[in-house]
Simulated assay, not measured.
Amino acid sequence: MSAAVVSLELRRGAAAVNPVAKLAATLVLAVALALSVDAVSAGVALALELAALPLAGLGWAPFWHRTSALWITAPLAGVTVALYGKASGRVYVDALLVHVTDGSLHLALVTVLRVLAIALPAVVLFATVDATEFADALAQLLRLPARFVLGALAAFRLFGLMRDDWRALELARRARGVADRGRLRRFAGSAFALFVLSIRRGSALATAMEARGFGGPTPRSWARASYFGRREVLLIAVATAIAAAAVTAAVATGQWVFLGH
């Protein structure tokens, strides 16, 4: 057994699952929850997802760090819908464009639950995904073009360098006194310099990859094999069960409202 496979097996829970399976599980939940606009299906799905969080292989500190923006944006989206959503039922506030009614409050609750139920599993599952592992899975399992996958992986790897370049440009321009006044002017100058630097680095990287045979016509080999086994099937089955339970609960309570009606 290779060192990569051993390392994969030592990781806990869903963190060791192939990224393609994580993508499939996320899509199953998203499609099922996007078919209806009701609070029951979203609430049941969210409750089951929270119950399954300990199996995700993500500690509580990383969990709150990764999902902190989600817990803020979801209620904000609900507030927006409550203020400007479709008016129906009892009216609580009616001023200019603001209409707070029973219908808008219900739709706000549905929005919050649905955003959390769809986005939470995606954030948690992909928090433990390595970019190289994801690229391997896309090329080997989904048979996506290797040239496209590796190019996207190389571009993703350059994001960290771009952040460092931005910081270096800021320090260099301040040291030389260039655009020391005016925040917008300084930002525009640094952005243009970073754009030129990114083009140069991308061209050099493309030339280096071509020189190493990344664009060759022969089938390429892979340093790490991407596996799809029982663990991946189990994750997709769990996601399907959660989606089925949510839809069943909504239909049984008469709350199922198909999207578009």
Rank of each mutant, 00 (worst) to 15 (best):
A179I: 04
L70G: 09
A139F: 05
R11M: 05
A30Y: 12
R66N: 13
E232G: 10
L83Q: 13
A34K: 11
A61V: 07
A250L: 12
A25T: 01
T248F: 02
L50P: 12
A175Y: 00
A244E: 01
M209D: 01
D165S: 07
V124C: 06
L23W: 03
V31C: 08
P62K: 11
A188P: 11
V251A: 14
L10E: 01
G57F: 04
A74Y: 06
A82C: 12
M162I: 13
Q255R: 15
A127Y: 01
W71E: 09
A61I: 05
G13A: 11
T73R: 04
L105N: 10
S226R: 14
L70M: 10
A204F: 01
G254L: 14
S41T: 11
A206M: 04
G216L: 03
V31H: 09
G160H: 06
A241N: 08
G189Y: 00
G182P: 11
T248L: 14
A168T: 07
W64K: 13
A16K: 15
A152R: 11
A211T: 13
F126V: 04
V233I: 15
P145I: 05
R114C: 04
L96C: 03
A69T: 11
G177L: 07
G182A: 08
R201W: 06
A139K: 07
H65G: 14
A249H: 08
A139I: 00
F156C: 10
F63V: 08
R90Y: 10
G13E: 08
A252V: 15
A225K: 02
T67N: 12
A244P: 14
H99N: 07
S198L: 13
H99V: 05
R220E: 10
R11T: 03
V251D: 02
T80E: 00
A155C: 02
R66S: 07
L138T: 00
S36I: 04
R114A: 03
P145A: 14
L105G: 10
A152L: 11
A69W: 14
A119I: 06
L46I: 07
H261L: 14
T111H: 12
M209R: 15
G85Q: 13
R147K: 15
R114F: 02
A211F: 00
R66C: 12
R231Q: 12
L184Q: 06
L29S: 04
A108V: 05
L35N: 09
V81D: 02
A21F: 01
G177I: 06
L8F: 01
L153A: 05
I242H: 04
A241S: 08
L141A: 01
L138S: 04
R173Y: 05
A74Q: 09
A155F: 00
H99S: 08
L158F: 12
T207H: 14
S2Y: 00
V196S: 07
F134H: 10
R12L: 07
L158A: 13
G215P: 11
V129K: 04
V123F: 08
V100E: 10
V115H: 03
L105A: 05
P19W: 02
G78I: 01
V20T: 09
L113K: 06
L171C: 00
V81H: 07
